[in-house]
Amino acid sequence: MTPTRDGAGVSTDGTPTGVFRKRRAGAPPAFFACEAAGLCWLAEADAVPVVRVLGVGHDHLDLERLEPARPTAAHARGFGRGLARLHDAGADAFGCTPPGWSGDGFFGPLDEPLPLPAGRHDRWGTFLADLRLEPLRELLAARRRLSPRLAGDLTALAERLRAGDLDDDAPPARLHGDLWSGNVLWTADGGVLIDPAAHGGHRETDLAMLALFGLPHLDDVLAGYQEVRPLRRGWQRRRGLHQVYPVGMHAALFGGGYVTQTEALVGELVGR
């Protein structure tokens, strides 16, 4: 499926017509190259539409311009089937970045992208503990948004993950990695992936992110997904576990109610 494009020409700001230029002066080194590598890795699976990379520079990323449209239940079901196939394309390890990319990734808004630690773990539990929860705890502490109770609960949750209490035998999936509703752009042909934090992880993580801020027709997305890859029993109960990191990062970035939400999520997971 190919999103619609404008005709040839040049816009008033010098960007060619048909191109969306994502720009930020003073972006971290290789920030846009990292995003481009992630988009290309996702597109290589040929599973779900991904916005096409047209060019990349140190302060910008040129993407194919997409024309938004209202999503339908049929679009959502098709998107779910494609997302399952994307996850099935797999990754080399939990925490790995796209082939050809070395170093950490990025997570967060364009005006304040934060490091997304990379590594290579054989088990999802140790990956989540070492590369997500521990860095999150340090970041919350640095920003004075870590209460003693939350610090203790994050430590307890990490210990459970390292012990294998919450693991399963699922292999690493090829994840979008920041799949909240705003990073699915609906066109006349269906949903298209944009703005990834691509890495190897657990398939339920992308699905939990879609639920976090309310994707249109989410039930249809999940139905389509399970047509291709039925989810392991209890996936609804595990949703909070997969939401700890993104909610916690919102707490670090924005504070306020996200801190309370993080405390509640982690507290429930450790049995408070």
Rank of each mutant, 00 (worst) to 15 (best):
G234K: 08
G257V: 11
F107Q: 06
G201D: 02
R233F: 11
G152S: 00
H242P: 07
E35S: 01
K22D: 03
E134R: 13
L175A: 01
A47W: 02
D178V: 01
G200V: 02
R229F: 12
G248Y: 05
P29K: 11
G224W: 00
G190W: 07
D169E: 15
E112V: 12
G26D: 03
L241T: 00
Q243K: 09
V221T: 11
P230S: 00
G125H: 06
E35A: 01
A264N: 12
R144G: 11
L63G: 00
A252L: 12
G80S: 06
G103T: 04
G80T: 01
R23A: 13
P115C: 03
G200L: 05
R272N: 12
G191N: 09
L207M: 01
E134W: 07
A118K: 13
Q261I: 11
E263I: 08
P3L: 01
D62I: 10
R120Y: 10
L269R: 10
A163H: 07
E35R: 03
G119N: 04
H217P: 11
A156T: 13
A25N: 13
V192L: 04
A158S: 14
D88V: 13
Q226P: 09
H202Q: 09
A156M: 02
L63C: 05
E44S: 15
D46M: 13
F107K: 05
A151V: 10
A208R: 03
D46A: 14
G18E: 00
R52N: 08
L185F: 09
G240A: 11
R239A: 05
G191R: 05
G256V: 09
G234N: 06
L154H: 08
D195T: 02
H250T: 01
G90K: 08
G256Y: 13
G125Q: 08
R24Q: 14
L116M: 13
R21P: 06
E134S: 10
G234A: 07
L207G: 05
G257Y: 14
R85C: 04
E227M: 14
R77F: 10
G271A: 01
R272A: 15
D130I: 05
L212A: 09
T262C: 13
T126Y: 12
T2Y: 10
A156I: 10
V270K: 14
G78T: 01
L83W: 01
G214C: 02
G257Q: 10
T97S: 11
V48R: 09
P171M: 03
G125K: 08
Q243N: 06
S147L: 04
E134N: 08
R123V: 08
L161T: 01
S102F: 11
L210E: 10
F94P: 00
Q261R: 13
F106D: 02
R144E: 15
G248T: 00
T155N: 08
V266F: 14
R120V: 10
L114C: 14
G256N: 09
G55D: 11
R65K: 12
A73Y: 13
T262M: 11
D122H: 10
R160P: 10
W180N: 09
G57N: 07
Y258S: 10
P246F: 03
